[in-house]
Design a binder for these strands. Sequence first.
DNA 1: GACAATACGTCAGCTTTGTTGACATTCCAA
DNA 2: TTGGAATGTCAACAAAGCTGACGTATTGTC
Lengths: 168, 168
Amino acid sequence: MSDGLPPQMGQSLLFLTDEQLRKGIEAMFFAYRGFTADPDRILAEQSYGRAHHRAIHFIHRNPGTTVNNLLSILGVTKQSLNRVLRTLIEDGLVSSTIGQRDKRERHLHLTTEGAALERALSDAQRDRMRAAYRAAGPEAVVGFRQVLEAMMDEDSRHHYEAMKDRPE
Amino acid sequence: MSDGLPPQMGQSLLFLTDEQLRKGIEAMFFAYRGFTADPDRILAEQSYGRAHHRAIHFIHRNPGTTVNNLLSILGVTKQSLNRVLRTLIEDGLVSSTIGQRDKRERHLHLTTEGAALERALSDAQRDRMRAAYRAAGPEAVVGFRQVLEAMMDEDSRHHYEAMKDRPE
DNA sequence: GACAATACGTCAGCTTTGTTGACATTCCAA
DNA sequence: TTGGAATGTCAACAAAGCTGACGTATTGTC
């Protein structure tokens, strides 16, 4: 064990050492900061926060979604989401319309103004993601997504898969 | 443009489409939830939060670090860090000793008890990361890390690189 | 038609974790 | 030696999460 590795570990499993895993954990931590940095700057100008960004993103991706559905995607309580949603509706970024089939439901859409903010936010976030993709190359991108998908909870994976191949 | 792609885009740049970038963004969002889920459960039992986890992790990785240095790694205000640090010191998980050379500085170490919690937290997080690595395979892991590193801010990358190859 | 369940909104109150501002202590350099 | 910079602490506030309770409208079921 003079090499610091369990003796039964062959060359093929070197990527599973605690050392490698620790690097992955720290990379995830630092990268997530970069991931949110650019949208955060835009949001701060309008005194919105990350919670608003998440709501806007998933309403954009699921036009007409109900509050309940959004709740299960975001994984927060309705009280928490409601606070965010209320300000977005008051500010005219999101519209809430009573359901036709089921009048208890509210269907959520981005207004023109909401879509404009969504675009600004996702442009900023995509720019960084594009730079990272370009720097790392196409094969790295495949691996990136594979590891991320394998890291998700069951629930998250369901939501992710459901939206994954839906056109923009 | 009947394929929905800009005509100048060759096969080699398909991984840079907005569609691909969006999938990466959503994968990052959902994966980060999984990434923090297991430690969060352990922390909740002791009425600690993610901020405590981060402090414990980086004190473990940088024994004897000063508050200021920890501050720049974590990227929060000193007041915010101080609150977390105070509870950890009161609870006997972290020791704070006045600097010999510069008496303004405090040097931070994990106590035996603090190291035990650190172990529990990182074991849980490593388990999930290991499962994801194993599922995705070694080549995917290389790509995963490459994209994450390219996504970091300058500051984060410096901190990451400084700790990267330091033994556990 | 009565009644339980569902969907949504809201009030109140608490926690965690971020922020700014004010302040004490310590060090260093002019 | 003294004034400014650096380090860390206390106080107060804000964003965004949480639980619990409750009201209202609507739907579905017995």
